[in-house]
Design a protein around this nucleic acid. Sequence first.
DNA 1: CTGTAATTTCAGTAATTACTGAAATTACAG
DNA 2: CTGTAATTTCAGTAATTACTGAAATTACAG
Lengths: 185, 185
Amino acid sequence: MQLTPLMNDFIAHFGEMGSHWGINRTIGQIYALLYVSPKPLSADVIAKTLSFSRSNVSMGIKELDSWRLLKTKHYPGDRKDYFTVPDDIWLIIRTLFEERKKREVDPTLTMLRSALLDAEAGNQEEAQTLERLKEMHDVIELFDSWYADMEKLDTKKLLRYLTLGSKLIKFLDAAEKLTFKKSNE
Amino acid sequence: MQLTPLMNDFIAHFGEMGSHWGINRTIGQIYALLYVSPKPLSADVIAKTLSFSRSNVSMGIKELDSWRLLKTKHYPGDRKDYFTVPDDIWLIIRTLFEERKKREVDPTLTMLRSALLDAEAGNQEEAQTLERLKEMHDVIELFDSWYADMEKLDTKKLLRYLTLGSKLIKFLDAAEKLTFKKSNE
DNA sequence: CTGTAATTTCAGTAATTACTGAAATTACAG
DNA sequence: CTGTAATTTCAGTAATTACTGAAATTACAG
């Protein structure tokens, strides 16, 4: 596939960015390529376009697949696999968040929970440590349940929630004041 | 410093987790140690406790410092630096988010903006690519401005916002329906 | 079923990143 | 100011991760 300079920049940027996330250059670039590509690409074409070895592309695809970020397509009479990205960017975002949560937040929460359960504060020092862990646990749990709440919203509502942002809190404040006033009348 | 088994597990977990984030084992462990330590620790003590070389600790501290996640303390008559973590976990969380945004989101947004600005769609293919980039730009920008909104809230309000979660949307829906009804009376 | 194209695995190697110890620099008690 | 403790830098090396090419496996057109 022939890349335009625009595509090239975009792909390069995601390669760089990949290393900031836990992901490697190859995987970032493959995803960026598939994201801008107007049609599904075979592993061979990906390898040629990005000058990676065929096996490297295979491993990258496997990894992206384990993140559920890829769609596979087949054409009749052609035994190659063709790959795309979901058309709906919101679906991509949702999957990304879900997977990151699963890999990064959940294990930490589990660890904190079992630590808090196991440990009986024997002494002063232990009690202080437990206090710190409890604090972290509670914050993460709060985000976790907020996120579970968000996940339930359909895209339209989620969009509304994000667009309104802190206005919702202001709105609630105003409503509360009103209620307070009324109950004082 | 003598570590209890509880501290040890916690520190080990953050070491492992570090590699999932962009951060290395050393830095994760140093931060976990400082987080649970009841008092500020000198670089020497950190090195001894975690069995890292003194220079490795120095580099780790430098990195954590660039993330603004550390507080430095001095005692009169003692020329050593002592390090802690902010006591308020919400401050830690806020700083973490801010820095991650600065390092990961902002550059992507900048790249997308300039790409969209520069590129005049010459042909059909270019137009399609631009469309995809625009889509991504808009989503990221939405999150970005939502986040800017959240940042303004004090901890108490933020906590309320998170606790209420999607209930705010339900509340708004109800309010809208009410308004609609009223305007139809 | 069979032959072969396509894909994956995996051992070996290249490239990158993490870490150490010695040397240089900084910073502060006296 | 000075001496020295504390910190940082940096070149060298160890450890880890990324990538390749060949071999093995899979999967499907005919």
